[in-house]
């Protein structure tokens, strides 16, 4: 358990750095898994702009905040169903942290993804209107991510 988790973690890290997954000699990662992991990275990328502003680590910039929030809403609107084919759970694809609950509780998973869309839309509504408004909505946005990771992703945290 420990070894395979470490290995899948390494694999994930390698993929993140530059698609070096194959170099490790594991079986090939399905395109859908790569695509959805890329999608998650896009989410954290746009989230980071908003989050660093909310934390006060970078200066608030209304245009940049608005563009990031718009991007998150666009990601939420993507057709995500094809990214989650059966047979790509963590037990079936080493690079995957997807729990079987995604498929056994498809309705709950859809609701969790919708919750992200709702939270992203709320941020979109305030992101360009000042730092205080942005700060007020960031908590809910973070919780929508965490809510999904809670039940549908293997916990490494």
């Amino acid at each position: 358990m420990q070894i395979s988790t470490t290995r899948s973690f390494l694999l994930l890290a390698a993929l993140t750095i530059g698609g070096a997954g194959i170099a490790i000699g594991q079986t090939e990662v399905p395109a859908a898994v790569k695509a959805r992991q890329g999608q998650m990275q896009l989410q954290s990328f746009y989230l980071s702009t908003l989050g660093e502003m909310a934390r006060g680590n970078i200066d608030y910039d209304a245009d940049a905040a608005q563009a990031s929030a718009d991007s998150l809403v666009a990601i939420a609107a993507m057709d995500w169903d094809p990214l989650w084919p059966e047979g790509t759970a963590t037990s079936e694809v080493e690079a995957s942290r997807a729990l079987p609950a995604i498929w056994t509780d498809a309705e709950g998973y859809a609701a969790a993804w919708d919750a992200f869309g709702t939270a992203a839309a709320a941020v979109q509504g305030v992101a360009g209107g000042g730092l205080d408004g942005l700060r007020a909505e960031m908590g809910a946005l973070g919780q929508s991510c965490g809510g999904c990771h809670d039940d549908y992703r293997v916990s490494n945290d």
Binding site: S44, F45, S48, M138, G142, G146, D150, S155, D157
Partner: peptide, 20 residues
């Protein structure tokens, strides 16, 4: 310290599970 307040890792991954 900031992670313990908002749950965002430095890479803006978000804690799930019990840590949330």
């Amino acid at each position: 310290a900031q992670y313990l307040a908002d749950g965002f890792t430095p890479d803006f991954d978000v804690a799930g599970g019990h840590m949330a």
